[in-house]
Design a protein around this nucleic acid. Structure first.
Length: 794
RNA sequence: UGGGGCAUCGUCUAAUGGCAGGACAACGGUCUUUGGAACCGUCGGUCGUGGUUCGAGUCCACGUGCCCCAGCCA
């Protein structure tokens, strides 16, 4: 990814590792602990893979600890079966699978379960009640929703919000022992019903649920909510950096509130929540509801259908864990939700398989060829690996189908060459298109490993389709434009091939479904993402494969030459009736057409960007008057407008102007102190600012110095002018001092000088920057620039 | 509609006021007993408009667009 990326790191530097670096530097934590908290209510998919990779990778990169925790606080939807599958899938993802790479297996201690901490959680809830920070509410769900208000109407307290601590304690205890039916009461945090953040309007901490939990059975009938499960369990298992996706940003306020009120004075540092953007993949969907629809509607065969974005599906298809890890690492991490190009996944898969999958031959759509001059059957010994893979092998060895590493000359298999063989039907064209490099009537082509083939004649069936070729096999010598693969018709094995393609016909099925709703007033039920299902996502073909594979271990991934990467379908493969799944095709640079019919993201964006004209800012009469006054005093239009609209800013300016020139102070107030003045966090006094600007105007310091000093003053709360004198900051303005530095920098970078003189004027910034750095920011930048320009153009 | 988050090549991601870089894709070439792989090259981007600055993707203002929040789901 980034050029500075360290190969031993799993995760490229990102905004979260920056925070960790700073935390470590400040000594806030001695060891990094991350966790991945899936809910056992469905199967792991690519989204889980990316998130768990991130969490595991960060712990790995910092020598920390990674914990897998089942987030099992909802007995109604969670099952042991899902928990087991999740654990199995994640172990597989972290392991070597059947690849031959060194293992990089993910390790975690015991799998954690939120349900193992129900006692601790309950005790913490009691503490909150005792502190008067939580209460039992007894309104119906409907009423609670009503009382919570809406985004633009504050909530109102329920009748029960004022219950005494004793009463709350008693009721909560009775909730726990099962005196009330499901839904009769809830425990809520007492935070702020008027908060503009809806999550802070007294979130529910516990609810009554008479249901059997797959781990705790009937021991509990009250269960913690998401918010109450996260922060406390994170803290209990010593998590330091709790990563989650962006939709939980608002919940961070609850997380922090809980930590403030539950974890102070604990002696151990508290965890913090950070959010990252989700990654989705083109041509697929991952939401549980939608995957269920695909299964329920018979579009796919189940959770492990090889077209599914589930780890179970990808595993059955033959995708390696290594490929998925490479993919997760290359996708990266940011604070924006993104949809990743499916080519990135396919590239990761091919890249892994290219060096791990031995080559054999199979024919998917057979066309019979009679080699009229072949009198005796032959056994050819063909190599499993092409020269380039052999050459680039780190240990000089290559793999046999079982995985055993041998010298390249030993990596061969016997391939029978018989009088009748099959070739791929599409490798023969009676009327070849322009650029066709394969087989044609009267043409020649190379039969992989067998020699040059000449086509003498062909016959057709009643439908006019080519059904048989009569050919002469020439020697190995000679040239042919193309090379085609083949299988003995008499000794090849019959096999079924399952050719998978993208699940949907369009890259963004959900976005397109939404478009339909908007445009045609159709609801999601009428015509949703399913209408974009790709009916050709599975094509079953029956053909032949060379007999050598019969002896190979069942979990061997092959490259079928010129066709793609395949491996047996472990579920449907039967002795004598092999079934192969196509993992991914080979890249085809002779692409016939682009198959994508959907709109690109850019197109969708463009459609929506029929921008409305921006509204003119409306000013009140007072603001208008102030604006005019400011303009008259020499403040630029843009700054004047900002000042006129903001009371706090104009008050600050008026005050500062008592000590200095109003017009020159204005832009500093707007551009450099604006947000801190508005927030009320400004630490630089108006007089202090004025004093600093005087130094600037006298030429004693440069704008650059003034900005740096102002930033520092704002950080530490010191008077700017004092910083200037303390540090002895002074603008360097004499040519005799700067010129030698310029000379040196220019002399040290002849290549950049040449590039600059060739028109890359952006490099001026580079040179100025170098000089500024050398002088500790004290050189007069105008002068520096002037000297450089003069120097470089001479 | 109140609050919050976000915006860099077609896609993903770097650049922490100083050279807009990388990967994937696409395109072209070299090589090739896989129209594969490898290698070389080309194309292509800071959402918009103003402002501050010697210098803005980065700071300020105003717009635009997308996403999240009104479950006793997570």
């Amino acid at each position: 990814m980034s050029p500075t990326a360290d190969k031993s790191r799993m995760v490229s530097p990102n905004f979260i590792t920056e925070i960790i670096d700073e935390d470590l530097r400040a000594g806030r934590y001695s060891q990094i602990v991350t966790r991945f908290p899936p809910e056992p209510n469905g199967y792991a998919h690519l989204g889980h893979a990316i998130a768990s990779y991130l969490n595991y990778g960060i712990a790995h990169d910092y020598g920390g600890v990674f914990r897998l925790r089942m987030d099992d606080t909802n007995p109604q939807t969670e099952r042991q079966e899902y928990a087991d599958a999740l654990i199995q899938d994640l172990r597989w993802l972290g392991g070597g699978g059947s690849t031959m790479r060194p293992l990089e297996g993910w390790e975690w201690g015991e799998v954690e379960y939120a349900s193992d901490y129900f006692d601790e959680l309950y005790a913490m809830a009691i503490r909150l009640v005792e502190k008067g920070l939580a209460y039992v509410d007894s309104v119906s769900p409907k009423e609670m929703a009503w009382l919570r208000g809406t985004v633009d109407r504050p909530g109102t307290p329920s009748l029960y919000r004022g219950r005494s601590i004793a009463e709350n304690l008693e009721l909560f205890q009775r909730m726990k022992v099962g005196e009330f039916p499901t839904g009769a009461h809830v425990l809520r945090a007492k935070i702020d019903l008027a908060s503009p953040n809806m999550k802070l309007r007294d979130p529910v901490l516990y609810r009554i649920l008479h249901a059997t939990h797959y781990r705790t059975g009937n021991r509990w009938c009250i269960y913690p909510s998401y918010d109450f499960a996260q922060a406390p369990t994170d803290a209990l298992i010593s998590v330091t950096h709790s990563l989650c996706s962006l939709e939980f940003v608002d919940n961070r306020a609850v997380y922090d509130w809980l930590m403030d009120n539950l974890w102070e004075g604990q002696g151990t540092p508290r965890p913090h929540q950070y959010e990252f953007g989700r990654r989705s993949l083109e041509y697929t969907v991952v939401s549980k509801r939608k995957l269920l629809k695909l299964i329920g509607g018979g579009y796919v065969s189940g959770w492990d259908d090889p077209r599914m974005p589930t780890l179970a599906g990808q595993r059955r298809r033959g995708v390696t864990p290594q490929a998925l890890r490479t993919f997760a690492g290359s996708v990266g991490i940011s604070r924006t939700n993104r949809t990743v190009d499916i080519a990135l996944l396919e590239h990761a898969i091919r890249d892994d398989l290219n060096t791990t999958a031995p080559r054999v031959m199979a024919v998917i759509r057979p066309l019979k060829v009679v080699l009229t001059n072949l009198t005796t059957e032959q056994i050819l010994h063909l190599r499993y690996w092409p020269e380039d893979v052999v050459r680039e092998s780190p240990d000089g060895l290559v793999s046999l189908p079982g995985g055993k590493r041998v010298r390249p000359e030993e990596a061969t298999r016997p391939v029978p060459l018989t009088r009748e063989i099959y070739i791929e039907a599409e490798d023969f064209e009676v009327t070849p298109p322009k650029g066709f490099k394969r087989f044609t009537p009267g043409g020649t082509v190379r039969l992989r490993g067998a020699g040059i083939l000449h086509c003498d004649s062909f016959s057709t069936n009643e439908a006019g389709e080519v059904c048989e070729l009569h050919c002469t096999l020439l020697g190995h010598e000679g040239k042919a434009a193309g090379v085609i693969h083949w299988v003995s018709a008499t000794q090849g094995l019959r096999a079924e091939f399952r050719l998978y393609d993208r699940l949907f016909r369009v890259p963004l099925p959900e976005a397109e479904a939404k478009e339909l709703e908007d445009d045609e007033g159709e609801t999601a039920e009428d015509k949703d993402f399913l209408s974009f299902f790709n009916p050709n996502s599975l094509e079953v073909a029956h053909g032949f494969i060379e007999p050598s594979v019969a002896d190979d271990s069942l979990d061997t991934r092959y490259q079928f030459e010129r066709l793609g990467y395949f491996w047996p379908d472990l579920v449907d493969c039967k002795p004598g009736a092999p079934v192969f799944n196509r993992i991914v095709t080979l890249r085809d640079s002779w692409a016939k057409e682009t198959r994508s019919e959907g709109k690109s993201r850019a197109e969708i964006r463009a459609l929506k960007e029929q921008s409305k004209p921006g509204l003119e800012v409306v000013l009140s009469p007072e603001q208008q008057a102030r604006l005019e006054a400011f303009k008259l005093q020499g403040i630029g239009e843009s700054d004047a407008l900002v000042l006129a609209r903001d009371e706090k800013l104009s008050v600050y300016l008026t005050e500062a102007a008592k000590h200095g020139n109003l017009a020159s102070l204005a832009s500093w107030i707007v551009n450099d102190l604006g947000s801190s003045i508005r927030e009320g966090t400004v630490k630089v006094s108006p007089a202090g600012l004025a004093e600093l600007i005087k130094l600037l105007e006298s030429g004693e310091i440069s704008t650059r110095i003034a900005k740096d000093v102002l930033t520092e003053a704002q950080e530490v709360g010191q008077n700017p002018a004092d910083i200037v004198s303390q540090k002895g900051l002074r603008q360097m303005s004499d040519t005799s001092a700067i010129a030698p530095i310029v000379e040196r920098i220019v002399a040290a970078n002849p290549d950049k000088v040449a590039a600059y003189q060739n028109g890359k004027t952006g490099l001026l910034g580079f040179f100025v920057g170098q000089v500024m750095r050398e002088t500790g920011g004290q050189a007069n930048p105008q002068l520096v620039q002037e000297l450089i320009v003069r120097k470089l153009s001479s």
